[in-house]
Amino acid sequence: MFYKINLENILFLDIETVPENATFEELSEEKQLLWEQKSKYQRKDEFTPEEFYDRAGIWAEFGKIICISAGYFIDKGNDKNFRVTSFYGDEIKLLKDFKNLLQEHFNQAKHLLCGHNGKEFDFPYIARRMLINGIRLPYKLDLFGKKPWEIPHLDTMELWKFGDYKHFTSLKLMANVLGIPSPKDDMDGSMVRDVYYAKNDLDRIITYCELDVVTTAQVFLRLRGDELLEEEQVKKV
């Protein structure tokens, strides 16, 4: 039961992604054709491949990670403290830095990764981008040969499904229905591409990513029946 998991053994995380190139025209002819084929069923006849390219960030083959934010609990007696840190900028460097975090501090059997829709998006996306960039997978992301109960991943959206596999609930909606105060952010996921390429405001994206990590941790606490974090218990490091 996840109620018995030591909170200090969980690394909460969230990623922000964008298309690998700013525009469709920057892709090679071969990659343009591959994008047209990959996106065919999602865009149908409503959009051309060029018009649909602003959504390329959701596919690891055509996108890249610009920020990984991670949070973890520190036990100080009867007081919970939550620390948040971010890796951002150059993708290869941020992936290597994140891998180092996993290997140095979250590499034991007891350690778990947790994200919202992490099993469908964040965890496989990070793994694919590592391999694309020639980075050997850390143990926590290498699932080959592992039995389902050996996979060290938690997913707050999966915990909310209760076996209903067709049920998708956004992090923002879960926070709302569970009575978790909404973070004071000024953007949503659909805006990340423009904020990155058009406005060149990576700091704004980092803040947004970190707020999602804190909200994911809050959702996890509520699902366990634990008290929520107070603002002063959350620190950026």
Rank of each mutant, 00 (worst) to 15 (best):
I10V: 01
E50W: 04
E30V: 02
K236Q: 04
L112E: 05
A217K: 10
W35D: 02
H116S: 08
V237E: 13
I65G: 02
D79K: 13
S170G: 15
D79H: 05
G189P: 04
F98I: 06
A60K: 06
M191Y: 01
Q108H: 13
G189W: 08
F62P: 00
L178P: 12
L137D: 07
T169H: 15
K146Q: 07
E227L: 14
F106Q: 01
R129Q: 06
G63W: 07
D226H: 12
K235I: 14
I132C: 06
I135K: 12
R83K: 14
N107H: 11
D155L: 10
L211C: 10
Q42P: 09
R224W: 06
K236G: 04
E104N: 14
K99M: 01
I132L: 03
A217R: 07
S86I: 07
L101I: 13
F106Y: 05
R136C: 02
D90W: 15
M130H: 03
F87T: 14
H111T: 13
P124F: 00
D194Y: 00
D142H: 03
K110I: 15
Y196W: 08
E231L: 12
A175M: 06
H111M: 08
K99A: 04
N107A: 04
L131I: 01
I92N: 14
Q233L: 04
C209M: 05
N100I: 04
V214A: 06
Y88K: 11
F47P: 12
P19E: 02
E25V: 00
D201C: 10
E30W: 03
E231N: 14
V195C: 01
G225E: 05
L159R: 15
K166C: 14
E158A: 05
E16M: 09
K235S: 15
R224K: 15
K110M: 10
E25N: 06
Y41W: 12
W149H: 15
E61K: 10
E227S: 13
T85S: 08
E120N: 14
I65Q: 01
K4G: 15
T169R: 12
T23R: 09
C67F: 08
F52T: 11
L113Q: 11
D226E: 10
S28M: 00
E50L: 10
F98V: 03
E120Q: 12
A175W: 09
S39H: 06
W149R: 15
W59D: 09
